[in-house]
Amino acid sequence: MKFQIDSSSGPHIGIVTLTGRVDARNCTELQNSFMSWLMDTSRFVFDCSGLEFIDSSGLGTIVSCLRKALDHNGDLKLAALSPKVSMVLELTKASKLFSIFPDASEAVNSYVTGTKE
């Protein structure tokens, strides 16, 4: 799990790189970290290219992160979902809640240009 601010294209966008698994064991860590990242920005991109598996608690955490970002007038966009992760998102209908992009840079750009997907 890595967090960095990308301001190359103007607005401050928090890019979170998720790796391995997001599940019951480490989702509280993500939840707590997200609260601190919210101090810096409210616009997020979760880069999921290294995310191999997500279970329902992990999914719940990401959805609650989305809610908080929306509460702060921001957004949380997902990028580079692996086929397996995106199957879980479709199964649970979570895919309908998020804007999903094929890779992180497109997700970042969408904040600048305002495109939606």
Binding site: D55, S57, P83, K84, L91
Partner: peptide, 15 residues
């Protein structure tokens, strides 16, 4: 997913 042959094993019994 039959089209891509990807297989996911759920760990959550409520799913």
């Amino acid at each position: 997913d039959p089209e891509t042959a990807f297989l996911v094993s759920m760990e959550d019994p409520h799913l």
